[in-house]
């Protein structure tokens, strides 16, 4: 592999000559050493503060603890499933509202979408949990649905708007009704183009299910906290983090990679030609948004 093919072209650097390559190699060695030193220091700290003692890792061998963790994981996935299905529905409804030809409907939908996008999710979750006094799971799901539904509404809307104008005009010219144009022509193409952005938003929803921990919903992090604060196991805090975070981050990463895979696939697909396929980036800007 040559030096140029390793990197995407950018305006910053020239193709390195022999001298620059040598310099880069020296920098590379130094950087690798520095990174290794940081990792070594973290490892030293872990050993120095006795994080690998049997007492701290013993709880994970018990089936009771394993079941507790699995139950927590199950609750996390349950909240995610409810929240994602409901926010897709809410997003669809709000997007229809925003694309409506009737001004009052459009106005109401816009206010709802803008308000819930500007509010922290946690404020909504706490509001439902504390002020309306509902159970933890419905409170979490409501908060996540309102926020992600509003974001998805914008995704759907910009998807429909990004479909090539000729498609709509051709459909109307064929004598199709408004609803037919939307359902049979625009929505399918918009959905294809926006699929990566939709999945990326679901990654956000999955990440935010961990907010349930703050309202004592018995999810994955909550289960971890229970184990971590147990004196019998010498407060195995770091071991719990070391067990929980790879699973949590791994789940989100899998979903993110799925979004990227879909994005690459759709880009090659001739059926998705009439609307530009979005990039799979969580929190990224939608086309046309500033």
């Amino acid at each position: 592999m040559t030096a140029t093919s390793e990197q995407e072209p950018s305006a910053l650097y020239d193709v390195p000559g022999p001298k620059a390559r040598k310099r880069h190699r020296i920098f590379g060695v130094l950087a690798t050493l520095a990174i290794a030193a940081i990792l070594g220091w973290i490892l030293y700290l872990l050993f120095d503060t006795d994080q690998f003692t049997t007492a701290k890792w013993r709880p994970f061998a018990y089936t009771g603890i394993q079941e507790l963790l699995l139950r927590g994981l199950g609750n996390t996935l349950k909240a995610f499933a409810y929240a994602s299905v409901l926010s897709l529905v809410l997003g669809g409804v709000l997007a229809v509202g925003r694309l409506s030809d009737h001004r009052p409907v459009r106005w109401v939908a816009t206010v709802i979408v803008e308000f819930f996008r500007a509010m922290p999710v946690l404020v909504m979750i706490f509001f439902v949990f504390v002020a309306l006094q509902v159970q933890a799971l419905p409170a979490l799901v409501t908060g996540l649905t309102l926020y992600n539904g509003s974001v998805l509404a914008e995704v759907f809307r910009s998807g429909v708007n990004s479909v090539d104008k000729g498609q709509r005009e051709a459909a109307y010219a064929l004598g199709m009704r408004k609803t037919q144009v939307m359902v049979q022509v625009l929505a399918p193409q918009a959905l294809r183009a926006m699929l990566p952005a939709i999945i990326s938003q679901l990654v956000v929803a999955l990440k935010d299910t961990s907010l349930g921990y703050l309202i004592t919903y018995e999810e994955f992090l909550h289960a971890g906290k229970l184990i971590a604060s147990n004196l019998d196991y010498d407060l195995p805090f770091i071991p719990v983090v070391m067990v929980i975070s790879p699973i949590y981050i791994g789940m989100c990463m899998l979903l993110s990679w799925f979004a990227q895979w879909v994005s690459r696939r759709q880009r090659r697909d001739p059926k998705a030609k009439a609307a530009a396929v979005t990039r799979a980036e969580p929190g990224g800007l939608l086309p046309g948004e500033r």
């Binding site: 961990s210 703050l214 981050i249």
Partner: peptide
């Protein structure tokens, strides 16, 4: 980017003191 922020808070605020 794939870390839930609550988990990060959990790890930093309660983990680093260890």
């Amino acid at each position: 980017r794939n870390t839930p922020l609550t988990l990060l808070f959990f790890a930093v605020l309660l983990g680093l003191p260890r």
